[in-house]
Computed example of a mutant assay.
Amino acid sequence: MTLLAAAVSLRGHLFRSLAHYEADGRGAQDLARDPALGGDFTGVRSMELLWSLTPAGPEESCLRQMPRGVMRSPLKVEVTVHSTPRQPREPLGRRWTLRRFSTPERHPTRLKAVHLRAVFLLPPGDGPFPSLICLVLED
């Protein structure tokens, strides 16, 4: 089976990723347990389908800057399931999910260097906890 993720950015650019899996005897798939066998990545990586979203189309290969407001706006991602990677006809199923870059509880700290801007998102509390750093190269 093939899982395909697609999302449209705030600027209207399409992003996609896909991965191929082998379902168990009941047709079930557990992304936290079963490895991806090909596509945009391999191995057991439960969130990689979302993390590997890349611009779709040759005209978008130079996308690099995250627009203002993206930290507050969720990204709407459609995940579809296909029976075969060769001829992905109509999907067997689909689900929409919202992916957030941040929440109101996280405190952004903006960092600046010569040609680099970054945002450090610090969750509330004493930690330790994982964090997200968004780096944007400036011209």
Rank of each mutant, 00 (worst) to 15 (best):
L10D: 11
T54V: 14
R11K: 10
G57W: 10
A7L: 13
T103M: 05
P74Y: 04
E22T: 03
E78R: 07
A7C: 10
S131C: 13
D34Y: 00
P85N: 03
A113H: 05
A118C: 10
D139T: 05
R117N: 12
G27R: 14
T80R: 14
L92W: 03
S52E: 02
C62L: 12
F15D: 04
L31K: 02
L121Q: 06
M71N: 13
P58N: 13
T103F: 01
F15I: 01
G43C: 06
S9D: 15
R110G: 05
V8I: 12
S52G: 06
V8M: 07
S52D: 07
R33T: 01
E138I: 05
F120V: 08
L50M: 14
G12K: 09
L10E: 07
L135Q: 09
H13T: 11
D30P: 02
R86F: 11
H107M: 01
V136H: 10
L3H: 03
T42F: 00
W96E: 13
A32W: 09
G38S: 10
G39Y: 01
L137G: 12
L92M: 06
D139P: 03
R86V: 09
T54A: 15
S61W: 14
P85W: 02
R68T: 14
C134M: 10
E105A: 13
T54M: 14
L132Q: 07
P35W: 01
S83T: 04
L10Y: 06
P85H: 05
R106G: 01
R16E: 15
S83D: 12
D24K: 06
T84D: 09
M47C: 11
R68M: 13
P124Y: 07
T97R: 08
S9G: 08
A19Y: 11
G69R: 15
G57Q: 06
V136Y: 04
P67T: 15
L98V: 01
M66A: 13
R11Q: 15
P124F: 04
L122R: 12
G39F: 03
V81A: 09
F41I: 00
L50F: 14
P104E: 10
P74V: 06
T42S: 08
R45P: 00
K112T: 02
M71K: 12
V79K: 00
P55T: 02
L10F: 09
G39W: 02
D40H: 12
P88R: 04
G25N: 13
G12N: 11
P74C: 06
A113F: 02
L137W: 11
R100A: 04
S102A: 15
Y21H: 07
L49R: 02
P124R: 09
R45H: 07
R95L: 13
G25Y: 08
H115D: 09
R26W: 00
C62E: 14
F101R: 09
G57C: 05
S83L: 05
T42N: 02
F101S: 08
A32E: 14
R100N: 01
E78W: 00
L122Y: 08
H107Y: 03
L92P: 01
S83H: 09
R110P: 06
M66I: 13
S83V: 06
P130Y: 04
